[in-house]
């Protein structure tokens, strides 16, 4: 029944606001910072922030896929440390291309272990990946012996292109981040594979009753996540031209924050890649904006937490139509 009375229109408007809340918050946020700092909205500054967000962004894309299927991946931070140490260390020993190849294979193996344990053995993903987080730390320390690694010939290696170079007049990390986001968005939103992920995340039982191999879908999401970590490691290794065993420490929480800010449901089955990208950018701009306003670096951690709580609260409030929880 089509109805055109004005209360209904107002309700429609609130629905739109609720659905696109993250985008609206992002725009308001940018305008706000732009008003108080005249350096904030300059093209150079904006590009810098996007470039600095690329590593978190690439990882967040992979984690979004895992979360959409109803699971978590907390091992991405220490996986990043491992992958970066590996690719940087092997660069001088094997050459750039083999180093990248070996690193990607090793990272995918870790993803496969996560995927096997969560997908096929059906263990709780929080426990599996939290355990993996510390296990990989151990592996990385054993591999590196606790020492820093770096690339000797930083001027001539083509490996520099990923972190320091430009493609089509844009910094390569930005191109990789946005390119990967665009591809994954197409995959998740428009392919049968993406549809299976939403089904498994939305209702795993119904997915199995519909002929979807739930185990394989879950397994595959951890491969996607591991692959994204591999890409992030290439960018990071190339930018720094060196690494140590704790470079990725704490990244899992930043990445998860970005995913949550983007509105992906931790229960699975709802969310999109492009909103994760917005979430990543919000995190990046908070950090940048606060620094421009002269706050100490660590202030961003507190502000980020507040922003996440606000975002989650408003999201929940929009869904239930009231700010505070009803009694039952």
């Amino acid at each position: 029944m089509a109805s055109t009375t004005s209360p209904d229109r107002i309700k429609d408007l609130t629905t739109v606001l609720a659905r696109q809340g993250i985008l609206i918050a992002f725009i308001l946020f940018m305008i706000g910072f732009g008003l108080v700092s005249d350096r904030f909205l300059t093209p150079e500054n904006l590009m810098t922030v996007v470039r600095q967000s690329a590593i978190i962004g690439v990882m967040a894309i992979g984690v979004t896929v895992v979360v959409l299927s109803g699971n978590l991946d907390l091992s991405v931070g220490s996986m990043l440390s491992f992958a970066t140490v590996l690719v940087v260390d092997l660069h001088d020993k094997l050459g750039a291309a083999p180093a990248i190849g070996v690193m990607l294979v090793a990272t995918l193996c870790i993803g496969a272990i996560n995927g096997f344990l969560v997908g096929f053995l059906r263990l709780n993903s929080l426990i599996v990946t939290l355990g993996m987080l510390s296990a990989i730390q151990g592996v990385t320390l054993i591999y590196s012996g606790g020492k820093n690694v770096d690339i000797a010939d930083q001027e001539t290696t083509w490996f520099a292109i990923f972190g320091r170079g430009e493609v089509l007049g844009m910094a390569t990390p930005i191109v990789i981040f946005l390119g990967l986001a665009a591809i994954m968005h197409l995959v998740i939103a428009y392919t049968p594979y993406g549809r299976r992920i939403y089904a498994v995340g939305g209702n795993p039982t119904a997915a199995v009753f519909s002929g979807i191999r739930r185990n394989r879908v879950v397994f595959s999401t951890y491969l996607v996540s591991a692959f994204c970590v591999g890409i992030a490691a290439i960018i990071l290794g190339s930018r720094v031209m060196g690494s140590q065993n704790n470079v990725g420490q704490g990244y899992e929480l930043l990445v998860l924050s970005a995913v949550i800010l983007g509105g992906t449901s931790l229960l699975g089955g709802s969310g999109t890649i492009w909103k994760t990208v917005i979430g990543v950018l919000i995190l990046g701009f908070i950090q940048n904006g606060l620094l421009l306003l002269g706050f100490p670096y660590f202030a961003q951690w507190i502000v980020t937490w507040i922003v996440i709580i606000l975002a989650v609260w408003l999201d929940v409030a929009a869904k239930r139509g009231r700010l505070f929880s009803p009694i039952a």
Binding site: Y198, A199, G202, N203, T205, A206, F209, G269
Partner: peptide, 9 residues
């Protein structure tokens, strides 16, 4: 609801 449908789709 449990086996037939993905309610969020």
């Amino acid at each position: 609801k449990e086996q037939g449908l993905v309610l969020s789709m």
